[in-house]
Design a protein around this nucleic acid. Structure first.
Lengths: 329, 329
DNA sequence: ATGAAAGCGCTAACAA
DNA sequence: TTGTTAGCGCTTTCAT
């Protein structure tokens, strides 16, 4: 069933049927009624491929994820989904596994008008590529950003988050604080580390660089980091982690070493994923407003969708520090 | 940049360029070389919308999820992704929130040739609809199935899983066993419950129906269920849960009641999501072979992709029972 | 080995 | 208010 057949059945032209479908006012009420009844009878729905080819629009957006295996993304996507739906856009999700070829493959859907825009999380593309891309296509970065790229984005203030966390520890008389993070040189990492360092500077606390341990974000990396850190003579009384998985690994290792987490050593994670609440001890964490991040990401892309030359906005949403047993609450 | 412009630049016809793109043998080696160099120079990639419109194929499949907020799906999707990629298919993921209108909206992409097939998890559509759909379009159900529908699917033997778990408890001398589950009347639920009942029958253990508590799958539901179960005089020494979230809630409530989980009361969950490993006590669970489920789901749809009349296959993959502290290991 | 032309389903400019 | 027609980018049949 296609528009041509419907037109034949109705006894009207294809154009008239198209007008009815698209709620064009230039069609007689009686005609509209007749056409609609036929459309209804045959359960006809216009072919989006044909329409896309013609209009160069798809009413779909793409969400490009580095991995599906992170519970952190789910609520954000819900925020995107809901907001997109309100504006008549469908949401498609694709996973890159941080392989550049896959990123390009999915981003290619933009050029094909197969999606009208893309909300991207962590990706491997360089600043120049992102800048050029976002000039031509609605493109928004969420939670993570490419340093130096001219593009709309929404993030939390990662630096301030870790600055606040670290400052709190310092103000509570912790003199030796460790920082466990990843080693991807991505924006969030760099900001968090610099927040850690800045807090030391501002509070005149000498920073021991060997207490900054960076590798990956697996929980085994958190455990390894603790082993390393506690093999020296001067051991920390607080550990700031750049993710919950790292905090989890760190805590499990501390438990194995029979160090009392929340009393002898404080530990805090990042992202407030559900594990933090259920673990024993429950894990303190920096919480990002996930649903709102998703909502804002869509709002940003919506502006670009309507006007690709809209100015790039850089939105910062507030985070919250949530204290649980691992920081003694 | 489109095929027409490329043709002009090359000095060949659109048809020839198309042949080069599609690796058609009927084109001179020298011509192919020339055309390819131009394609390369202008970084031309064919427009999929145009091609789809013409070929009625998209080389994409859709994965339809009830929700993003379940860590269980991520590995399965990875399995689908990887296998699809091997066969030149891209994977798109959409979320229905179990709203029928959204399910239909995304399923509509099939009719539009916007995706060539769909792998669906739990959905709300009835058997008849699914049967008809799968006659016309490559459609596969994964992990969950619509009872009575004629459609390819891949699942584990949910009944046997719970049968085995329950039997083990009985053989270890447990006389009073509770079962906490959901109340959606979906296949997996019904099978699991019947496995629970069958194990009692086969071992001549009288079943107390009031020990079967069904509501939702939130962890608070697990806690509520335990409250209810332990408000009677005859309390169980083992609890079989239809999900990890239920097990988690059940255990946390038992802990609150100062009942020693893993000694006084055994608890086992379902799906072996990451929480099970990290919780204290660590939670025993039935593990589904997630990556393989995804891989098999794609293999099934691939058969339908190549021949829509391929017979419907019902694949059952093996599960594993993983014992941890919550069952005394 | 190559090209011309039709047509996939739709929208929109122009005509009537 | 309605219809005619061109064309979005591509593949494929039929000619040559």
């Amino acid at each position: 069933m296609n528009i041509k057949k419907i037109a034949e059945i109705c006894g009207y032209s294809v154009a008239t049927v198209s007008r009815v479908i698209n709620d064009d006012s230039r069609v007689a009420a009686s005609t509209r009624k007749k056409v609609l009844s036929v459309i209804d009878k045959y359960n006809f729905v216009p072919n989006i491929t044909g329409r896309s080819l013609r209009t160069q629009k798809s009413n779909r957006i793409l969400v490009l994820l580095p991995t599906m295996a992170n519970q952190f993304y789910t609520t954000i996507i819900q925020g995107i989904e809901d907001t997109a739906d309100e504006h008549g856009y469908a949401t498609l999700v694709a996973v890159s596994n941080l392989e550049e070829s896959k990123e390009l493959k999915y981003l290619h859907m933009l050029r094909m008008n197969h999606v009208d825009g893309c909300i991207s999380f962590f990706n491997t593309l360089d600043a120049d590529y992102i800048t050029q891309l976002s000039k031509k296509y609605p493109f928004v970065q969420c939670c993570e950003l490419t340093i130096g790229a001219e593009v709309s984005h929404v993030v939390i203030d990662n630096e301030k988050a870790i600055y606040d966390v670290t400052s709190e520890f310092i103000e509570n008389n912790h003199k030796t604080i460790a920082f466990i993070s990843g080693n991807y040189y991505k924006y969030s990492e760099i900001s968090r580390e610099s927040g850690f360092i800045k807090a030391h500077l501002d509070h005149n606390l000498k920073l021991d660089k060997s207490l900054i341990v960076k590798s990956f974000y697996r929980y085994t990396d958190g455990a390894e980091a603790v082993k390393k850190i506690f093999s020296r003579d001067k051991t920390p009384t607080a550990i700031v982690c750049a993710s919950d998985s790292l905090a989890l690994g760190a805590i499990s290792e501390l438990k194995r070493m029979e160090i009392n987490v929340g009393e002898e050593v404080m530990v805090i994670g990042f992202d407030d994923t559900s594990i933090t609440e259920f673990y024993k001890p429950s894990i303190s964490s920096v919480s990002q407003p996930r649903y709102e991040l998703g909502k804002e990401a869509f709002d940003l892309i919506f502006q670009k969708l309507n006007n690709i030359d809209a100015t790039n906005k850089k939105v910062i949403l507030p985070h919250r520090i949530i204290h649980r047993e691992s920081t003694g609450y």
